[in-house]
Amino acid sequence: MLDVKITKKLNTHTLTFAGQFKQQFTGIMGSSGGGKTTLLRLIAGLTVPDSGKITFDKTTWYDGDHQINLPPGQRPVGFMFQDLALFPNLTANKNINFYQRLRLYHQKEPITPEKKQQLLETLEITPFLDESVQRLSGGQRQRVALCRALVQQPRLLLLDEPFTGLDDRLRLKTIALTQKALAQTKTQVIIVSHRRDEVTAFTDDIYELA
């Protein structure tokens, strides 16, 4: 269970959030500039809160009072950025493998080849595995980014506006494939979006940021 109670001063207001994430899927919604992405970054450790506490399954990731702040690499988190952050110089396969290779240093149980193959097939990535990510469509890039996050077998997956920029037909297909892939894991997922339908496709457990 993820327990978050933090404050962070932003440009226009102070983000204050207190919540417990108990379900496998939790949604976070809110208007632009409300702090949705910042909240994910705070959980991942990419941004440091001003004060508060973040714990995950009894492990403290951040505690302002006791000056505890676990670096991002030591939190079992997968992060799918809004702009996907795929390495443009690599193919889809190398993007996934590169991520997996670096993560192996910290992983006690790396993903098995069978599981990885199943993930590639579920997300329908296999046909363009050796293509440069720069040549892929928006939906294909999105699935590569999701696969890259999932091969690390994170215990917590943070999805930041994962379906932004896709047309309606592609969005529905990508949501369906994402649901299928996530159903094969026990990973806890937090999905951030400004669109209610994207969040409710996964969960009715939703936090609204002002």
């Binding site: 990419l46 992060f79 991520y99």
Partner: peptide, 10 residues
């Protein structure tokens, strides 16, 4: 974000 993507995985 590319740098952060690498930092997230340690």
């Amino acid at each position: 974000h590319l740098v952060e993507a690498a930092e997230v995985i340690g």
